Measured scan of single mutants.
Amino acid sequence: MKVIFLQDVKGKGKKGEIKNVPDGYARNFLFKKGLAVEATPANLKELE
């Protein structure tokens, strides 16, 4: 799953980066803790 990092995550990505991460990791950790959002067209547009 492609995500946009909202904060630096040690060993995974830095704020503003767009990266592919495993689905479970994204849903169960990154999204729940507010560290990233899914890289949807709407979210990508907001990032610009």
Rank of each mutant, 00 (worst) to 15 (best):
Y25E: 07
D23P: 13
F29R: 05
G11E: 05
F5E: 00
E48L: 14
L35R: 02
T40H: 05
P22M: 08
Y25V: 07
Y25H: 04
L6Y: 03
K19Y: 07
E46M: 14
E17Y: 02
V37E: 06
N28W: 11
E46Q: 14
R27S: 05
K19P: 00
V9T: 03
G16M: 05
D8V: 04
P22E: 12
D8P: 05
K33E: 15
M1K: 06
K14W: 09
P22I: 06
L6G: 01
K45D: 09
P22S: 11
I18F: 03
A36M: 01
A36Q: 00
I4T: 01
E48R: 14
F31K: 03
K14I: 09
L30D: 01
G24R: 12
F5Q: 00
G13M: 03
K33R: 13
L30I: 01
K10R: 13
A26S: 04
G11Y: 08
A39D: 02
N20D: 13
D8I: 03
Y25G: 03
A26Q: 05
N43A: 12
G13H: 10
Y25P: 04
G16V: 00
T40P: 05
E48T: 14
N43T: 11
F5A: 00
F31I: 12
L47K: 08
A42P: 07
V3W: 01
Y25S: 03
A26D: 06
L35G: 01
F5N: 01
G34H: 11
I18P: 01
K32E: 12
R27W: 11
A36H: 00
D8A: 07
E17N: 04
L35K: 03
A39V: 09
V37N: 02
L35D: 01
K14H: 10
Q7K: 14
D8E: 08
A36N: 00
G34N: 09
K12Q: 15
I4H: 02
K10A: 13
G24I: 12
R27L: 13
E17V: 04
V37D: 02
G16T: 02
K2N: 12
K10H: 11
I4S: 01
N20A: 11
K15N: 03
R27M: 11
L47F: 14
M1Y: 06
K33V: 10
M1S: 04
E38K: 07
V21G: 00
V21Q: 04
K33W: 15
A36G: 03
G13D: 01
F29M: 07
T40Y: 05
N43Q: 09
F29I: 15
K12W: 15
L6M: 08
V37Q: 08
I18S: 03
V37W: 05
A36Y: 00
A42I: 10
K2I: 14
G11K: 06
N28K: 11
R27I: 15
L44R: 08
P41F: 10
K15Q: 10
K15R: 13
V37F: 04
G24L: 12
G16L: 05
A42S: 11
G24Q: 13
K19E: 02
K2P: 08
T40E: 05
K33A: 12
L30Q: 00
V3Q: 00
A39W: 13
T40V: 06
T40N: 09
D8T: 10
K12Y: 15
K19V: 11
V21P: 00
L44P: 04
N28F: 10
L6R: 06
G24Y: 14
A42K: 11
K15Y: 06
A36R: 00
I4R: 04
A39S: 05
P41K: 10
R27E: 10
G11T: 05
G13V: 05
V9S: 01
P41Y: 12
L44F: 08
E48D: 13
F29G: 05
D23K: 13
K19R: 12
K10G: 07
K33S: 11
A26F: 12
V9M: 04
A26I: 06
L44G: 06
